[in-house]
Structure formats: C-alpha cells, structure tokens
Amino acid sequence: MKVFNTFFLVFFIALSLPAYSQDIKIRNIDGSKEKLAFDILSLALKKTRPDVTFSPSNESFNEARLIEEVISRNIDIIWAGASPEKEMKMLPIRIPILKGLLGHRIFIIRNEDKERFSSIKTMNELKSFTAGQGRFWGDTKVLKSAGIPVISTIKYENLFYMLEGGRFDYFPRAIHEPWVEVDSRPELDLAIDNNVLIIYPFPLYFFVNKSNQDLHDDIYSGLEIAIKDGSFDKLFFNHPMIKDALEKSRLKDRVIFRLDNPHLHDKTPFDRKEFWLDISEL
C-alpha cells in the first residue's frame, strides 16, 4: 500500500506540472536591438514561468527562414515587424515590444543636402524628395500609401551607395539605426537630418507557432504584468540603445509628419495607449 501511495503521489505531481517545456528555443542574439528584444522576452516570461531557460540558435537566419523555423517548430519564438502575412502564418503576441519605435523615422541624407532638408515644413515639401527603401520592407508600403515617392532595391547595402550617387534623396531609418550606419561608412559623404520626423504605427511583435497557444498566453500575460508594474518601461528606457537614440534624435525638436499604416491587422491594439511611445511624455 505504501508503494502504491508513493506511486500515486508521483503520478499526481507529474500531472500537475506544466505540459510545456521550460526551455525556449529562440533565434540567435546579434546586435543591440536583438539583445533588447530578448531582454524583454526574458522579463515577460519570468513573470509567468519563473524557471524558464532559453536556447539561442547557433545559426543566423534571414527573416523568411526564421518564419519557416517557427512554422516547423525548430524555433519557438521570433520577433519581427507586424504584417498580415506573418500574422496568418504564425501566432502574434499583439503587444509592440519596442513601443512602436520602428515607426519613428529620421533620415540619412547626403551631407551637401543638410540645408535643403532643414527647410522642410510641410508634407508637400517632403513629397518633393524621393526616399530609398528595401523592396520588400513592410514600411515601404506605408510610404507609398502616403504618396511619398520611393525608389527600392533588394539589397540593404546598396541603399547607401545609391543615396550617395543621387538615385534618391534620403533613407528613412528607425531612430536607433542611422548613427552606427553613417559612422561605419566614412568613405561615403552622408549625414543625418536634424529636422524631420515621420511617425506611423509599425509594431514589432513576438511570434510563435500557431499551435503554441500556451506560450503565446504566457508571454502576453507576462508583458501585461511588466507594463503594469513598471518593469517594462524601466528596462526599455534604461537600455543603452534607447537612451542613446532618444538623446541624439531630439524628437520633440523636429517637424513631425504622422502617416497612417493601412497595412496592419484590424486587431492591432491602437486603443492601448500604454503600449505605444508618446514623444510628448519624454
């Protein structure tokens, strides 16, 4: 009877344990943005799975391959810019993990054009200039929908040389991106415009496999807890990349143009103001 009771107790405990693995397979962590996204993921999941561990991939994949890795369950979670296509293939956690920062865009320009850009005051004046973008980037559609002239290319690196060569006039970048990009290409006579800021909704989400509802729910709940208890904002605004970007970009001192993003899912949480960056509160 004692052996039976011991067996029953072990069996009951086993049934009480979570059915999911505590080890989460993630993409590789390469660069400040990826490190911040991972830190936010870790913060959220440790609110709901205190014993969680993470196993980063040893390989570096492009976004299309990362999506396939999630679908095939070789990777449990990725983070990527929102789009209807991704939200059909995977299960999104619809809380923008960078507070919509990717939709705050300032420009890399030719050094000789600083004065031309400093005089822009209206949308019509901005539309007299041509932007350069990646052909398949989600925000390329946003600019085109707003009537902004765009020239695109497949290769990211080409954009810097096309800009210097006069193929287009400016390269819109998220506010944490342009300084490193310009400084790492001293052979090109490029600069960062100090006048214009474009803002449009463009969330970066966590995505999991469509069948992994438990992981989705635990991440969502953990993010909600972190936002409510203040630990999310503490992590976000104290991250060196964010602090440096906000200090250098001087968002409040710029001419702001707000664009719609008609390419987002109708479940995008626009009504949750606490999810989004409000530059008036900086």
Rank of each mutant, 00 (worst) to 15 (best):
A174I: 14
E59H: 06
F168V: 14
M162S: 08
R254W: 04
K86I: 11
R167L: 11
K89D: 14
P269Y: 14
D233F: 03
E115I: 01
F257S: 06
K25D: 07
I71M: 07
Y205N: 14
W179C: 01
I199V: 12
T48Y: 12
L197Y: 02
V182M: 10
I26G: 04
D113W: 05
L36S: 12
I227C: 04
I242L: 11
F117S: 01
L246Q: 10
L264S: 11
F4R: 04
L15C: 05
F237L: 07
K267V: 07
N212Y: 13
D51V: 07
A146M: 05
A191D: 12
I151L: 04
L143K: 12
K114T: 08
I24D: 02
F270Y: 11
W179G: 01
N194L: 07
I227P: 06
P56M: 15
W137A: 07
F207L: 05
S21F: 13
N212S: 13
D183T: 13
E125H: 03
I227Y: 11
S231I: 07
V196C: 10
D193I: 05
I242E: 12
K234T: 15
N209T: 11
D214S: 02
T6G: 02
I29M: 06
I97D: 12
L215M: 03
I97S: 05
N62W: 08
